[in-house]
């Protein structure tokens, strides 16, 4: 058996046909993980008991594989009466799994704001809400933008796990071609290259964003 480049080329359109699914899943999961992670981090700051609970939750999530989470949600949720489409289960699973990491991103993003910023804002007479929304939140968002971007790349690279719960994304479609044609090498190589190009491109974009955010005009 040989590697058939012509056949590999014919698989490309089919695989790229679902690139939209892959990217949307990654975007939605990144949003979900950010919201969850940010909530964890805010809750963690609310007192010593919440801090302990949230710390444990985050550590639990970070100590368990994404595949185990996907299986758990995929098989347990219906048992509990929540029958969701596989796509939704997949997004939920990635959101939970990556929230453990996003929580750390938000922690670092908040901790990197000097204490004097809130003090200066308060000294001007701003109320709590204005201190957060005009002084702290914009700085936090700037601090987390690049790390969130990097985690988006990680999430994107984790989307093929969703093939394990039958979500029709790029790896899934490659495996479909493989089982129909009994040729595994070509579609898998193609999907590998597509993911590599996608990941490298977005990572480069994040690097540019980082340079822009921390360039001469800002800090």
């Amino acid at each position: 058996m040989n590697f058939d480049f012509a056949f590999a080329a014919t698989t490309l359109p089919t695989i790229l046909g679902v690139i939209g699914t892959t990217i949307s899943v990654a975007l939605l999961s990144c949003a979900g993980a950010s919201i969850l992670g940010f909530s964890f981090e805010i809750a963690r700051r609310a007192g010593s008991l919440p801090a302990y609970l949230m710390r444990f939750t985050i550590d639990f999530i970070r100590s368990t594989p994404v595949l185990a989470w996907l299986y758990f949600l995929y098989f347990v949720l219906p048992h509990w009466g929540f029958t969701l489409p596989a796509l939704v289960v997949g997004i939920l699973g990635l959101s939970i799994y990556f929230s453990g990491y996003l929580a750390e991103v938000f922690k670092a993003g908040i901790d990197a704001i000097p204490k004097g910023q809130a003090e200066a804002a308060k000294a001007l007479g701003l109320n709590r809400i204005d201190v957060v929304s005009f002084v702290l939140a914009p700085q936090m968002l700037r601090n987390v933008a690049a790390p969130v971007g990097n985690h988006f790349v990680s999430i994107l690279k984790a989307t093929p796990y969703l093939a394990a719960i039958a979500v029709p994304e790029m790896l899934g479609s490659a495996l479909d071609i493989a089982s129909n044609t009994y040729r595994y090498a070509e579609p898998l190589t193609v999907v590998g290259i597509v993911f590599l190009v996608l990941a490298l491109t977005i990572a480069q974009g994040v690097r540019l964003l980082e340079r822009k955010l921390h360039g001469p005009t800002n800090r």
Partner: peptide, 30 residues
């Protein structure tokens, strides 16, 4: 605090705002 101005050792200007926006933030919001 509206009637008490404070200047800090570390300046504590808001890095994400221009000089003008630093000066006008409290005027507008407070």
């Amino acid at each position: 605090r509206r009637t008490v101005g404070m200047v800090f050792q570390q300046f504590n200007l808001f890095p994400h705002l221009t000089v003008m926006a630093n000066c006008t933030l409290a005027l507008r919001r407070v």
